[in-house]
Design a protein around this nucleic acid. Structure first.
Lengths: 232, 232
DNA sequence: CCGGATCCGAATCGATACTG
DNA sequence: CAGTATCGATTCGGATCCGG
């Protein structure tokens, strides 16, 4: 029996041995957004030590969760295997579960492009979705979220986008929404869109302010049971 | 920012900080089966150090996942809060995901009553369920699984059950199934019930052997994508 | 710059012993 | 029964270094 094995013959235990080590699930979260290079993963996980990142990538490969793919031109990327990708619904559900217990950010907490992308998918309600194109800015992260026919697609926008003529791939968004971490309160339904605007939690800097209602309907995480009554 | 925080403001990260520490999710798994005393948890997690168990229980309480309840007569139990219980569908899905990657047991691996109970729930297919009463023995564990109207109830049977007249709560089961860890191959569909009987993977020691077909239809985990092509 | 490997102090984990 | 105390073994975190 491996040294750090839990010593149980059980599906949950096997899962935890595959993706339960420290940082492993966050690596998988970022890879669910798309294939990433070693350096991309480092940027998306600012506090991960580099030796831990390479150790985890090796372990995830041995577990059949992640695959290493050389790029045709140069370099290489890590990507999920089909088996690794099949964890997506679990990741989304886990994100919703954790969302209920999120308080306000601790000093030093960051919001990364991949985590916000995943959070949008987590909060996406296909049944209530209103078709629209949003540009969303939270902290340093800028995303383009396209809601079309009940489907969500999220693309990351490079922050210092130099406006070189002709290379802009997207049409103008219907609304440009600028927010901070307090956007959690809007998605969680703690505040209405009107209250969020009034309290400066979010701002609609382009497009009609009413599109914030569509946004709040499309991206919503209901407090299912009890979020977490007593906290430390 | 807490010392061992991941430093990200994200639902998945929050979830991992709540239930991602070593052993934590296995404690939650056992508590999903029912409230448990400290000693019960120790028995269900034979390799957990006792200081880790008490540390995790404290952390899970601070996170609002677990609650400590004094018993009316004597002693106390740990139980999940409503928020903690709301992780059940995720746990079941994770058990199915991990099941795909289970190989054969390592030497020293055990099967516990709570993990097998959870595994039955994990593998239960309400849509294909056939009503029946099973008594299932795997290793030292004995379970009573009742399938009624598409619902599953599992009770644990004390192994040395002294046959004191009148105190038996259940009627006779339709079938008594005795198996080893190889029962995974039956649930995973790697072998048919007939093959499992022929290979001595399982035995029906009471009741009609054809009930093993019902069992295999009721408890099944299909290989969704690729289980895990390459393994270490 | 990319993709790591190496080194080392700090924190955590695991095993055992002990206690109210 | 329900933990706490102790201590060596591991792992983690932070920093630096290195080959392409």
């Amino acid at each position: 029996m491996a040294a750090r094995s839990y010593g149980q013959y059980c599906g949950v235990t096997t899962a935890v041995e595959l993706i339960g080590e420290r940082w492993a699930l966050l690596i998988v979260r970022d890879l669910l957004v798309g294939p990433r290079r070693y350096t991309d993963l480092r940027r998306g996980l600012p506090r991960i030590p580099t030796n831990i990142l390479s150790t985890r990538l090796k372990e995830l490969q041995e577990g059949g969760v992640v695959r290493r793919v050389p790029l045709s031109n140069c370099g290489l990327v890590y990507e999920l295997t089909p088996y690794g990708r099949s964890i997506e619904p679990i990741m989304l559900a886990l994100g919703r579960w954790g969302f209920q217990a999120m308080g306000d950010p601790e000093p030093g907490d960051v919001i990364t492009a991949d985590s916000l992308t995943m959070a949008l998918h987590t909060a996406f309600r296909a049944d209530r979705a209103v078709d629209a194109e949003y540009e969303l800015h939270v902290g340093d992260v800028a995303l383009r979220a396209s809601v079309r026919e009940g489907e969500l697609r999220v693309a990351q926008i490079a922050p210092p986008a130099p406006p070189v003529g002709g290379s802009l791939p997207d049409a103008e968004p219907d609304a440009v929404i600028v927010a901070g971490p307090g956007i959690r309160r809007l998605i969680g339904g703690e505040v209405t869109p009107a209250e969020a605007l009034a309290a400066d939690i979010v701002a609609v800097v382009r497009g009609e302010a009413s599109l914030l209602d569509s946004f709040a309907a499309t991206f919503h995480i209901a407090a299912s049971g009890v979020p977490s009554p007593e906290h430390e």
